[in-house]
Write a protein that binds this DNA or RNA. Structure first.
Lengths: 233, 233
DNA sequence: GCCGTTTGTAATAGTTGTGTAAAAATGCAA
DNA sequence: TTGCATTTTTACACAACTATTACAAACGGC
C-alpha cells in the first residue's frame, strides 16, 4: 500500500503489454497486467485501481463489456481505451461506454504517457488518493482529509492520530513494538521512556472500538507492543 | 442564472466557428465565440467559463499562450485543444501545456461532442459550476456578482473574500494548508509568515456560520490549515 | 474611507507527563 | 499441577505545557 498509482493494463498482445508496462513503471506507476477479459474482471473484483487501460480486442470477450462492468462497480474509475480500431464508429462507441479517453494504435508513446498522467492528475481532484481511505469494521478512515466515520458519527483526526493510523494500516496484522512506533511516529530513540503511545491507543480505541476494554482492532500484545487487525484477514 | 455550461470557443475561421457553435448550442451549451487571442483573453478576464475550446492557429498570438494564461488564472479550467497541427510534437506540446484533450482536424463531430460532454461531466465532480451560485447550509454565494445571502441578510463581498471563497469551493473537503492558500490567493511564497488568512477565516465564519466559535463549514485543521465542508459530502 | 495587512494578546487544541488502578505474567511452595 | 503472593506491564483519567489559532484593534496604501 504505497503512494503509487496502481494501473490495470488489459492487453492480450504480450510484447505490447511488456512495452507499456515497462514505460509505465518507468514513470513510477505500479502496473498489473491482465491478458484476458476474465482475468481483468477478477482483478477489478479483488482490488481497487486508479486507472484502467483497456485494449478492445481480447480473445475471450469484448473490451466494451469490461468497460461497462467496471463503470458499474465504480462510476468514477478513469478508463483509457487503447485499440487498433480507429474509425469513428468505434471511437464514438468507446466514449459512449464511459471511457475517459481513446487512443488509436499506433500511438505516440509520449502522448500516451502524457494522457495517462493527465487523467491521473485530474482524478485526484474527484477521488481520494489510492490508499488514503481505509475501512475496518464499521469505521471508515480518510487519511487525506484527516477525518473518520465511526459508529458514533464523524470525527476529525489530529496529525498524530493520522500518523499512527498510517503505520497501523500499513502493517496490519503485524506486531508493532514500542520502539518501532517511537521511531516511525515520534522520531525518538526506540528505548525512550514514555507512555505517549498508550495514550493514543486509548484514544483510538475510544473512537473505533465498540467496547474499548475488549478491543477487536487495536490489540495489545503484552510485552511486545500492539497489533492492528482489520477484521478481514 | 440557468444551469447551462458556458463554453468559450476560440477559433478564427468563421465557418468552422459557426458550425461548432451551432452544434454545441444544439447540445444545450451556451457558447461565446472569440475569433482572436486578444478577445479570448478579455473574455477569460471578464467571466468564468466551464470549458475552453482552443484553436492553436490564431492570427494574433499562439493558442498555447492563451492556454498557459488561462491555466494560471484557474488551474482546473478544462481546456480542449482543436487544431490542424496533428503531429506528435504538437500534440505533446499541447498536453504538456495543461490541455485536457487534443483533437486534430479534421475530426468527427460526434466524437468532438462526446469528448466535450465527458470533460464537462467530469468537471462537475471537482469544480462548482462557474457562474452559478454556490450553496452551503443556509448560505447562498454568488461569486460572479460578489454577493452573498446569509441567515443575517444579504452582504457584499470584497475581492479578497471572493478569491478565498473560490478556492474553498473548488477544493471542498480537502485540507488546504497555509502555504497553498498563500500561493493561490496571495501569490506569496508558501512559507511567508503572516496571519492574513486567519483574519479572513474569522470574517467568513462571522458571515456564514451560525456559531463562529464552533464552525461547521470553515474548519480549522490544526497544524495544517483549513478545510471547507459544504455539508453534503 | 474602504480594504487589506500587521500586531498584540487571549483563548484553545493537541501532545506529553504522571499517578493510580487494573490486568497479566511470574515465582514458588504445597 | 494448583493457589497465592509478588512483580511487571498496560489502561486511562487528568494535569501541565506549548505551539497554534482567534480576533480585536491599530495601521497604512490606494
Amino acid at each position: 500500500m504505497d503512494g503509487k498509482y496502481s494501473i490495470l493494463l488489459v492487453e492480450d498482445e504480450e510484447h505490447i503489454a511488456q512495452g507499456l508496462t515497462f514505460n509505465l513503471e518507468q514513470e513510477g506507476y505500479s502496473v498489473t497486467h491482465a491478458p484476458t477479459g476474465r482475468e481483468a474482471l477478477n482483478a477489478l473484483e479483488s482490488r481497487d485501481f486508479a486507472l484502467l487501460i483497456l485494449d478492445l480486442m481480447l480473445p475471450d470477450m469484448s473490451g466494451l463489456d469490461i468497460c461497462r462492468s467496471a463503470r458499474k462497480r465504480d462510476d468514477r474509475l478513469p478508463i483509457l481505451i487503447l485499440t487498433a480500431l480507429g474509425d469513428e464508429t468505434h471511437r464514438v462507441a468507446g466514449l459512449q461506454h464511459g471511457a475517459d479517453d481513446y487512443l488509436t494504435k499506433p500511438f505516440s508513446l509520449a502522448e500516451f504517457l502524457l494522457r495517462v498522467r493527465r487523467i491521473l492528475e485530474r482524478s485526484t481532484w474527484y477521488r481520494p488518493l489510492p490508499g488514503s481511505i481505509y475501512r475496518f469494521g464499521p469505521n471508515t478512515v480518510n487519511l487525506q482529509e484527516q477525518k473518520a466515520m465511526t459508529s458514533q458519527g464523524e470525527i476529525e483526526l489530529t496529525e498524530m492520530e493520522v500518523r499512527i493510523l498510517r503505520i497501523f494500516f500499513s502493517k496490519a496484522g503485524e506486531v508493532l513494538d514500542r520502539g518501532e512506533l517511537l521511531e516511525s511516529v515520534w522520531n525518538l530513540a526506540p528505548d525512550t521512556e514514555t507512555r505517549a503511545p498508550d495514550n493514543f491507543i486509548a484514544r483510538l480505541r475510544k473512537y473505533f472500538e465498540a467496547d474499548p476494554a475488549h478491543p477487536e482492532f487495536f490489540l495489545t500484545v503484552r510485552g511486545k507492543g500492539y497489533r492492528f487487525e482489520n477484521g478481514e484477514n
